[in-house]
Design a protein around this nucleic acid. Structure first.
Ligand SMILES: [Mn+2]
Ligand SMILES: [Mn+2]
Ligand SMILES: [Mn+2]
Ligand SMILES: [Mn+2]
Lengths: 223, 223
DNA sequence: AAAATTATTTAGCTTCACCTAAATAGTTTT
DNA sequence: AAAACTATTTAGGTGAAGCTAAATAATTTT
């Protein structure tokens, strides 16, 4: 009933945050799927997080979980650690962008605030990680993000790639290969009603590419 | 009964290794003191480690614990992580030598073998950490160390500081201040029978210093 | 060699974070 | 509006790693 932030709790909060960003409350099953944990166990943890003092989530039976302000702060703390670590691993140890996620997922719970501050300073206080994801500020504010899924663009739209989902290494390697990385400009040459495929002209690439929804829903752009 | 190396087990093995280096078997109480755990709990863990397959320690009631070869390998793995991390933190993030121990104690259990290899490469495969302690090789061999305690020197002995104990930050700051750091040469100007104090001339320092046993037993030199 | 002291072990308990199986609630489909 | 299906919760249990208190073994002192 107090200030103990275990690894498990940090992971629950982080994933609740990410699910909340999407739609609304994080459901038991979605959390279970993301955390690779049985739904029954998730229910137990949500009850605990809701009854802790201070409460970290708002939770009503059968209605999923939302973060309280303390819960959100704790989540942003972990997300800041994660994204700074990813940046650090790429910059300092030569990791490629498809390798950092897994390592950062373990380190994020273990580094000190001092370590966090030293990384931020050494990296020049970056605002985005290697996948273009926004890094919460040191005082735990998440910068506004107005990007939208590449999948929502249509013929003749132009946009700049801002960020890509970082949890599938194979997808990351593929995106790198076809040049779809943050800050690159793209033009939609055509859209297929039936399968949702987009044909793109990618800045710096000779040939156009055709991408399906499995990919375009994971890439976010600014128009 | 198999290959699961928890944080706890890694810590037990590391401290058993260090106690074994000293005298012989690691006693229940010494381990309990180092790990900040009740002696009764240590007994329980030693029984588990001795009965696991493969056995990680040799343990006979009332006679303390010794590492088996598999246990020693696991210990050296953790110690290699720890010492590479300390070196990395100093070199890459500007930590001072009195700040790294605590951070490395947490990170040592969490980094991957890839992380270890990248650090080693980035640092030019160092053989000693910032305190002069030897780093086990990548294939888990601990290099021979023939240094002896500074406390064992007598008047007119000359020697080179090789390593210092790294667990007391205040002592480390003091040693830094008086110039007693690895690779520095010293001359013993006098020795006091009664309190064991040594008066030292330290290379690069204007004034001699007088050090008590609390300090000279924590500093190791080569004659 | 007893007695006293210290070290170690045993026994029984707790908390955390999981699990499975069974019950129940909520949502669709017919 | 049942029936069927899906999502979620409850109930009961496990293993890891710790704890305290009491028992016992080993060592040191008298
Ligand atoms: Mn932080
Ligand atoms: Mn990322
Ligand atoms: Mn290793
Ligand atoms: Mn060290």
């Amino acid at each position: 009933m107090s200030e103990i932030m275990t690894r498990s709790i940090q992971d629950y909060l982080k994933h609740i945050y990410e699910l909340n960003e999407y739609g609304s409350a994080a459901s038991t099953n979605d959390l279970a799927a993301r955390l690779n944990i049985a739904p029954a166990s998730v229910t137990g943890m949500l009850q605990k997080l809701a009854n802790s003092k201070p409460a970290l989530v708002v939770y009503k039976k059968h209605q999923g979980a939302t973060l309280t302000r303390p819960g959100e702060k704790a989540a942003l703390e972990v997300i800041r650690h994660h994204r700074l670590l990813e940046t650090f691993l790429v910059t300092t140890l030569g990791y490629s962008w498809d390798e950092v996620h897994c390592e950062a997922d373990k380190l994020e719970h273990v580094i000190s605030e001092d370590f966090e501050a030293r990384m931020a300073k050494a990296l020049g206080h970056p605002t985005r990680d290697p996948h273009g994801e926004l890094i919460p500020t040191a005082d735990l504010v998440m910068p506004a993000d107005k990007s939208c899924p590449l999948a929502s663009l249509r013929t003749d739209d132009t946009a700049t790639v801002r960020r890509v989902s970082d949890d599938d290494p194979a997808l990351l390697r593929h995106l790198r290969k076809i040049g779809v990385v943050p800050e690159v400009k793209i033009v939609v040459k055509s859209y297929s009603e039936f399968d949702g495929n987009l044909t793109l002209q990618v800045e710096g690439q000779k040939l156009n590419v055709v991408l399906g929804k499995a990919i375009t829903s994971q890439v976010f752009v600014d128009k």
